[in-house]
Simulated scan of single mutants.
Amino acid sequence: MKKTVHAILNILGTILIFVVLIGILVNANSAPEGKGFFGFKGYTVLSNSMQPTFSAGDYVVDKMVAYDEIKKGDVVSYYPDDYTIVTHRVKEVTPQGFIMQGDANNAQDDFTVTKDHYIGKMILVIPMLGRLPDLLMNKYLWIAGAILILGIVIYGEFQRRAQRREGV
């Protein structure tokens, strides 16, 4: 039984490490001018302008599909300036570019998205994943984690000592 639990925990730990590494690589290459990671970019949502599709704190993954493939109704990311990334729905495709609007907004965006400002098409939303960095900065979480690890180590040591006494 112990070997089975240990094997399952090893597999889950390996999967978790793999997912975290992929996330780090996607995030590290997600700047607007970045090349992405195998054609994908990811962003943390900062506002509720696209509710109920996604909310602040969610993580959006974009696929870098060609600008010409985008159609009305697609959700795309773009950067209107050097400091902002916006992910909204295409309301209209015009010769000048995409007319955009957040699902929760009453008005269209002031910015028409051209090929120069287009990033990618949203393909996935991971709820609340964007809150993870803030959560990891919480000192109480780190204290609780340290206490949990210490408890596991102490429990393991007591188990080893009990086994040695039984074996003697």
Rank of each mutant, 00 (worst) to 15 (best):
I11L: 07
I11V: 06
L16R: 01
L16M: 06
I17C: 03
F18L: 09
F18E: 03
F18K: 11
V19I: 07
V20E: 02
L21N: 03
L21D: 02
I22P: 11
G23H: 07
G23E: 10
L25N: 06
L25H: 05
N27F: 03
N27P: 08
A28D: 09
A28F: 12
A28C: 07
N29C: 09
N29D: 03
E33R: 05
E33K: 13
G34W: 14
F37K: 09
F38C: 07
V45L: 11
V45N: 10
P52I: 12
P52A: 14
T53Y: 10
F54C: 08
A56Q: 15
G57C: 09
D58K: 06
V61M: 06
K63G: 11
V65W: 03
Y67T: 00
D68K: 06
D68G: 08
E69W: 01
E69M: 02
E69Q: 02
I70Q: 00
K71P: 01
K72T: 06
G73T: 04
D74I: 02
V75C: 02
Y78C: 00
Y79R: 10
Y79C: 08
P80F: 02
D81T: 07
D81N: 07
D81E: 10
D82N: 13
D82I: 13
T84I: 04
I85V: 15
V86Q: 06
V86H: 07
V86R: 09
T87R: 12
T94G: 07
T94W: 01
T94I: 07
P95E: 08
G97A: 13
F98Y: 15
M100H: 10
Q101L: 13
G102L: 15
D103E: 12
Q108A: 06
F111R: 04
T112S: 07
V113K: 00
V113T: 07
T114I: 02
T114M: 05
K115C: 04
K115P: 01
D116W: 03
H117P: 03
Y118M: 01
Y118W: 06
Y118E: 08
G120F: 00
G120K: 03
K121P: 10
M122L: 12
I123T: 14
L124I: 14
L124W: 15
V125H: 15
M128F: 13
M128K: 12
L129S: 11
G130S: 15
G130D: 14
